[in-house]
């Protein structure tokens, strides 16, 4: 469990990137954090593993006040993937990159290799083990960064923009991995601008703007709340836009967050009736 109480943080003492953030994420939840560029999302999740320390307020991890915990202790519980893979990758092969974290956690060479191979293959990186992480495409680099954390299966996964540079198929396999880990009791927290990814996989959404949490709740209610969308620079997803436009004409169309199959069945009924 992660608890933040009135957390404040400023990089330069002038502008405040987090202005009193309070939140609780329970063990086994999956949560998306969305919102305006510069709202403080990256700053916020760097507090989860102690990379940044609150200048005011408190952070609790598994019931413990983190001001008493080292980054090494916190990093055993929370695995963080950076928004920019350049800030994460530093070894000469993908395999070493992934084995590094596993060895730190006490896995044997054999176990580490098995997990490494498994994770690479699940993220569409078969045959990448010996390649340098510096000679890859952008999307591949991001997946190596993800692999290095996912391979360790930490209790809490905190992923900053995990879908950047990913095509639909890679996004799908990533989501499947995250949901499997979630089912096994891991907490999954993603920061993302990808609304479709959130709607399909995350029941809870936290929306931020200007260093504060503007809304925190059911994804379907947060992402259909006009004022929240406006303040947090979010837009309605395509299917919900379609539902809204159809609602002007047909009163049996609901205005909640619509999925592909919702619209497909509405359209089928309407067109077959015509």
């Amino acid at each position: 469990m992660i608890i933040l109480e009135d957390v404040e943080y400023s990089y330069d003492g002038i502008y405040t990137a987090l202005r009193g953030v309070t939140l609780q994420v329970d063990r086994g939840e999956s949560v998306a954090i969305m919102g305006t560029n510069g709202a403080g999302k990256t700053t916020l999740i760097k507090h989860f593993n102690g990379l940044l320390r609150p200048q005011a307020g408190n952070v609790f991890l598994e019931g413990k006040d983190t001001s008493q915990m080292s980054v090494a202790e916190m990093a055993k519980i929370v695995g963080l993937v950076f928004q920019n893979p350049d800030h994460q990758l530093f070894l000469e092969s993908c395999k070493k990159e992934i084995a590094f974290g596993l060895k730190n956690l006490g896995f044997t060479q054999e176990e580490a290799e098995e997990r490494c191979d498994q994770t690479l293959s699940r993220l569409g990186l078969e045959g990448f083990a010996e390649r340098s992480p510096f000679a890859l495409s952008g999307g591949e680099r991001k997946r190596v960064a993800l692999a290095s954390v996912l391979a360790t299966e930490p209790d809490v996964l905190a992923l900053d923009e995990p879908t950047i540079g990913q095509d639909a198929r890679q996004k799908e396999s990533l989501a499947r991995m995250l949901m499997e880990m979630n089912k096994k009791g891991r907490t999954v927290i993603v920061v993302t601008h990808d609304i479709e990814f959130v709607i399909e996989h995350f029941p809870r959404t936290i929306a931020m703007s200007d260093g504060q949490i503007v809304a925190d709740g059911d994804t379907s209610s947060v992402l259909t709340h006009e004022e929240v969308l406006e303040r947090c620079s979010l837009t309605l997803p395509q299917m919900t836009q379609a539902a809204k436009a159809l609602r002007h004409r047909f009163d049996n169309v609901s205005d909640r967050l619509a999925s592909l199959s919702d619209i497909e069945s509405i359209a089928t009924t309407l067109l077959e009736g015509a």
């Binding site: 997803p237 509405i266 067109l271």
Partner: peptide, 15 residues
């Protein structure tokens, strides 16, 4: 290609 276009086409298809 967009949600609005889709909605419009469905409406056209039902008149």
């Amino acid at each position: 290609l967009t949600g609005e276009e889709l909605a419009l086409l469905i409406q056209e298809g039902t008149v």
